[in-house]
Design a protein around this nucleic acid. Sequence first.
DNA 1: CCTTGATGTCAAACACTTTTTACACATTGG
DNA 2: CCAATGTGTAAAAAGTGTTTGACATCAAGG
Lengths: 70, 70
Amino acid sequence: MKNNIKQLREVRGISQGKLALMCSVSRQTINAIENNKYDPSLELAFGIADALETKVDSVFKYQKKEKKRG
Amino acid sequence: MKNNIKQLREVRGISQGKLALMCSVSRQTINAIENNKYDPSLELAFGIADALETKVDSVFKYQKKEKKRG
DNA sequence: CCTTGATGTCAAACACTTTTTACACATTGG
DNA sequence: CCAATGTGTAAAAAGTGTTTGACATCAAGG
């Protein structure tokens, strides 16, 4: 799964912390998702898309699962 | 979160079991999601949308969280 | 009646997501 | 220097999603 949260965030001038507030999650959660540590829950994916005024399908793109490394 | 998996499935003549196979998850998982026991992971949401030849935003609609009852 | 396929439900176990707390570095401005 | 803001990272604990195995109901057909 890849996402363009960072780009969408930056053109809107929203920090990770602000986006976290808008989605009611921790700043670390947004940071981890942006950096592909893990995928958000479906609910949070909708929250993020909503905060960025776009669609889930526009923020996230599915791609074959990448195996986790060490 | 609500979804129209059942309707999308039925117009395509796909059973819960078949959809489960297409998504590589158990039949119970599809059943539980259809019956709003819980929301799928984002990855599975994409898998379901894909199997039903539509978009995540078309299959699932976000709505205020419903508190769990005993 | 018996079998088969589709659906609904439960519980235990396991894997993954999220929170919390804490520390690090860079930049901006007093 | 010191404070504030934005970002990256880590570990433990809590919460959520998924699998497996089991059992129940309903409908269709031998």
